[in-house]
Design a protein around this nucleic acid. Structure first.
Lengths: 249, 249
DNA sequence: CGCCTGTTTGATCTACCTCAACTGCTGTGG
DNA sequence: CCACAGCAGTTGAGGTAGATCAAACAGGCG
C-alpha cells in the first residue's frame, strides 16, 4: 500500500491503550493475539493531501486508520473524479490477498495509520478467526454504506445530498462527544468544498450554493467555512431521507 | 429472508453436480463439508417480480442464487427507487449474523435459490474457514462493484451509463458462452426499461432515448426490445470508461 | 377486436453545470 | 506594516443534459 514518501514514524505504545482498540479490526482479538499484532505493527503519519494508496498500484502494507480522515477516490481517464468512500478512525485500509488497490486513498486531514507488512498481516489473519470475522463484519458495513451512497448519487437532489453528508459528520461528532445531534454542537467539516463535491457527485459551485441556501433557510449555522451547527434537525433529517445506516461512511 | 408466499420446492440433487459449485460460497469447501451443506440446503423458486427479501425485514433464510437474476432495491419514502445491486448465478444473498436486510431483493427473471435456514447456516459458517474466506472474498468483490457503480452514478452521462450496463451484460454472456464480447453474440437484457432506469439512476424515457441513440449511431443492434448485439465494441468500451472491474455486478 | 403493459417519441421545463467575476484569508516579501 | 499573490470559497449569468408531461405505438392475450 503505502507511498514511498518519507514519513514520521511514531509509536503510540501498546495495543491495550490504543484509541481504536474497541472498534478496529483487532476488536475481537484475544490478549494473546494482541501481543502478536503488537509485535508486527508500525505507525505512520500522513499529511493532508498525501497519497496513502495509489489507484491500481500494488500495495505493500495495510492497516487501520488511527486518527484523521481518508478519502477513497476513483477517476475516469478524462479526469472526472468521484470519492467512493470516506474513512474515519478505526476503519481498515487495504485488503488481504489482493495486492492491487482498485482506488486511490488520500489523507484529507493529518492521518495516523497502524500498519502491517502485507505478508505478515496475511499470515496473521489466515490463522485468526477473530480477525477474519471482524474484517468480514467491517466489509459488510462498508458495503451497506456504499449502497446507501448509491441511492444518494442516483436519486437525491443537491440539497438532499449535502444534508446527508452534514448528518453523517454531525452523527460522528455527536457520538464521539457523547451528545445528541440536536444539541447544537459545532461540527468540523474535514473536507474542502472540492472533496465534498467529489463525494456528492456535484460541482463545487453547486455545493457552495447549497451551503448558503441551507444557511439562509435556517437549517444550519456556518460560524466559518469549515464549521457548521445544526439549527433545525428535523428539516435536515427530512432532507437527508431515511439513511440512518449511513453512519458507516 | 424468504417471503411467505408459496413456492415450488425442487431438488437438483447433490452439490457435486451443482452448476454454481465452482464459484459460489461453497467453492472452497472440502468434500466433507459439502456433505454437511448438502444435508442442510433446500431449493426454492421465485417468479419474476416476486420479492425474495423485504427491505428492513428480518430474514429467516439465506443462500446462493443458482440461476436467474435478482435486483437489490433501496427506496426513499417518497417512492424514488434505486437498484443498488444486480445479482447473477452464484452470488450470495443475505448475511450471516445480521437478521435484518437493509434492502429489498426482487427476482427479475425466474430465479432458483439454494437456501439454508439462518441458524443452520450461521453454525456452518462459524465452524468453516473455507466458507468464511469465500464469503469475505465475495463481499469484497461486491464492494468493488458498488464503488465502480458510485463513479457511474456520480460522474457518468446517461449514454455512458447505458454503455456500462450493456458491457456488463455482454461480458457475462460472453464468458458463459466462452466467446469474446467482440464476436457479435446476441445478449438478452434481463431487465425491463424501468429496472434499467432504476439501476442507472435515470428515467425510463432517458434510457429509451439512449438505446435508440446508440442504435442510430451504429454502436449496438437491437433485434428486439430485450436483446442487443454489440456492433462497435471499441466505441462501447470507450463510452463505458475504464471499469473493467464492473463484471462483478 | 380491444385492452393492458412496456416502450418509444415529442415538446417543454428545470436542476445543475459551466464559465466568469468577485470576496476574503493567509502568507510573503519589500 | 502594507502590498499583493495565491488559494478556497462565493456569487452571478447563461447553457444543457436529463426530467417531466403527454401522446403514440407495439406486442401479447383474453
Amino acid at each position: 500500500m503505502m507511498a514511498a514518501a518519507p514519513n514520521l514514524i511514531s509509536d503510540l505504545g501498546r495495543c491495550e491503550t490504543c484509541p481504536i482498540r474497541q472498534r478496529a479490526i483487532c476488536s475481537y482479538s484475544s490478549p494473546a493475539e494482541l501481543v502478536e499484532l503488537d509485535k508486527a505493527k508500525f505507525y505512520r503519519d500522513y499529511e493532508p493531501g498525501q497519497e496513502i494508496v495509489g489507484e491500481g498500484e500494488p500495495t505493500t502494507s495495510l492497516g487501520s486508520l488511527v486518527s484523521g480522515v481518508v478519502a477513497l477516490h476513483k477517476s475516469l481517464e478524462d479526469g472526472r473524479r468521484q470519492v467512493v468512500g470516506l474513512l474515519f478512525a478505526s476503519d481498515f485500509i487495504g485488503r488481504p490477498f489482493r495486492p492491487k488497490a482498485p482506488y486511490e486513498a488520500v489523507a484529507v486531514t493529518p492521518v495516523k495509520m497502524c500498519l502491517f507488512q502485507r505478508p505478515a498481516f496475511e499470515k496473521l489473519i489466515s490463522e485468526s478467526a477473530a480477525l477474519q470475522r471482524r474484517l468480514l463484519e467491517m466489509t459488510l458495513d462498508e458495503l451497506d454504506a456504499a449502497r446507501d451512497w448509491l441511492v444518494l448519487l442516483g436519486r437525491k437532489t443537491a440539497r438532499e445530498r449535502l444534508a446527508s453528508l452534514l448528518l453523517i459528520l454531525a452523527r460522528r461528532e455527536a457520538k464521539l462527544k457523547g451528545v445528541d445531534i440536536a444539541s447544537g454542537i459545532e461540527v468540523q467539516i474535514p473536507l474542502t468544498r472540492e472533496s465534498i463535491a467529489e463525494f456528492l457527485g456535484l460541482t463545487i459551485e453547486t455545493v457552495s450554493r447549497q451551503f448558503t441556501s441551507l444557511r439562509r433557510d435556517g437549517v444550519i449555522d456556518l460560524p466559518d467555512k469549515r464549521t457548521f451547527r445544526i439549527a433545525d434537525v428535523e428539516t435536515l433529517q427530512e432532507l437527508a431521507g431515511e439513511d440512518d445506516a449511513l453512519d458507516d461512511f
